[in-house]
Design a protein around this nucleic acid. Structure first.
Length: 270
DNA sequence: ACGCACCCCTGTGCGC
DNA sequence: TGCGCACAGGGGTGCG
C-alpha cells in the first residue's frame, strides 16, 4: 500500500491524533524490523511533546520538542492503526498520548523501518541525502529526468522506481504514470524522446496529486479503529488489470521488469 | 558505472 | 481440506 500518496495520507492522519500531544507511553514490541529499532527509543520518546509531522519520499517523520525525530518507513505492509481495540500480532510499536489516544505500527512483513534521528541532522542522514527530488515539488522537472536518463539503457520504469532519481514513486504509480504519458515501460530510458519528458513529469504529478486527494477524501475514516477502510481506492487504469480491456480495446498486459510486475497497454504505450 | 538477480518476511489466493 | 506455489504497494547488497 504505501507509496508516496499513502505515506502522505498517513502522515496527515497521524497529525490529527498526535500533533501537540505528549507521548505518555512508548512501547517497542520487538527489537528489529528491516533493521534494528533504536534501543533507546522508549527512553528518548517517553514524555516528549510532538511538535509536528512531515513526509520525505516514502518516509514519515514525527518531530518532538526534545530535538529528536522518529522516522518511519512502512515498507510493503506497514500501517498505523488508530485507537485499536486490542494489540495484534504484528503491532511492533505502540504509542499512547497523555490524552489516551493509541497508535500501533503494524507491519507483518517487517520490510519497514524505525529510526530516531536528531532533528537538525536529518538532512545530513545518508539515506536522505541519496534521495532525488520530491516529485510534487518544482525541483522535479523534465530537465531532471533528461539528465538522469541520458545514456541509460535500463527500462524507463526501473529508473522511475530508483529513489535517487525521483523520490516517492512505487510500482503502482509508475505503471499508471507511464500509461498516462503513453510511454512503454520497458523502453530504454535514454531512448525516450526529450519532448515526451514534460508530459511524463506532468502525468506523474497528476497521478500522485489525485491519489493524495482520494486518500484525503477518506481521511475522516482514518481514525476508525479498523483503520483499513480509508486507503482502498481503485482507480488504476492498468495496474492489477492484466487481461482486462484497455480503453482502446486491447488487453492490458503484464510483464516483469527488474523483478517487479509491470502492467501496460502495448497499443497505447510506445 | 550499470543492469540485474536475489534476499529480507508473512500472508493470501489459486490450482491441484 | 490440505498442500505447494506464485505473488504482493520496498529497498539494499553483491555480482558479472
Amino acid at each position: 500500500m504505501p507509496e508516496l500518496p499513502e505515506v502522505e495520507t498517513t502522515v496527515r492522519g497521524l497529525a490529527t491524533v498526535l500533533d501537540g500531544e505528549v507521548l505518555a507511553r512508548v512501547e517497542p514490541r520487538r527489537a528489529d524490523l528491516r533493521r534494528p529499532i533504536p534501543p533507546d527509543l522508549r527512553q528518548r520518546l517517553t514524555g516528549a511533546r510532538i511538535t509536528g509531522l512531515r513526509r520525505r519520499a516514502k518516509y514519515g517523520m514525527i518531530d518532538t520538542d526534545r530535538g529528536d525525530t522518529l522516522v518511519f518507513h512502512l515498507g510493503m505492509s506497514g500501517r498505523w492503526r488508530v485507537d485499536p481495540a486490542e494489540i495484534e500480532k504484528h503491532d511492533h510499536l505502540i504509542l499512547e498520548t497523555a490524552t489516551g489516544r493509541l497508535l500501533a505500527l503494524n507491519d507483518h512483513r517487517r520490510f519497514g523501518s524505525l529510526d530516531l534521528m536528531k532533528s537538525d541532522m536529518i538532512a545530513d542522514w545518508p539515506t536522505f541525502r541519496a534521495l532525488g527530488p520530491e516529485p510534487l515539488s518544482d525541483a522535479f522537472s523534465a530537465k531532471v529526468l533528461q539528465a538522469a536518463f541520458e545514456g541509460r539503457n535500463a527500462p524507463i520504469k526501473s529508473l522511475l522506481l530508483d529513489q535517487r532519481i525521483v523520490a516517492g514513486l512505487g510500482n503502482i504509480y509508475v505503471c499508471e504514470a507511464l500509461f498516462m504519458a503513453r510511454i512503454k515501460p520497458h523502453k530504454p530510458a535514454g531512448q525516450v524522446a526529450t519532448a515526451r519528458l514534460k508530459p511524463l513529469v506532468q502525468a506523474i504529478k497528476n497521478v500522485l496529486a489525485s491519489a493524495i486527494e482520494a486518500g484525503g477524501s477518506t481521511l475522516r475514516d482514518y481514525a476508525r479503529p479498523d483503520g483499513e477502510l480509508g486507503y482502498f481506492f481503485k482507480q488504476w487504469r492498468v495496474y492489477g488489470r492484466e487481461g482486462e480491456t484497455c480503453q482502446c480495446g486491447q488487453p492490458v498486459l503484464r510483464r516483469i521488469d527488474g523483478g517487479r510486475s509491470t502492467f501496460y497497454c502495448a497499443k497505447c504505450q510506445r
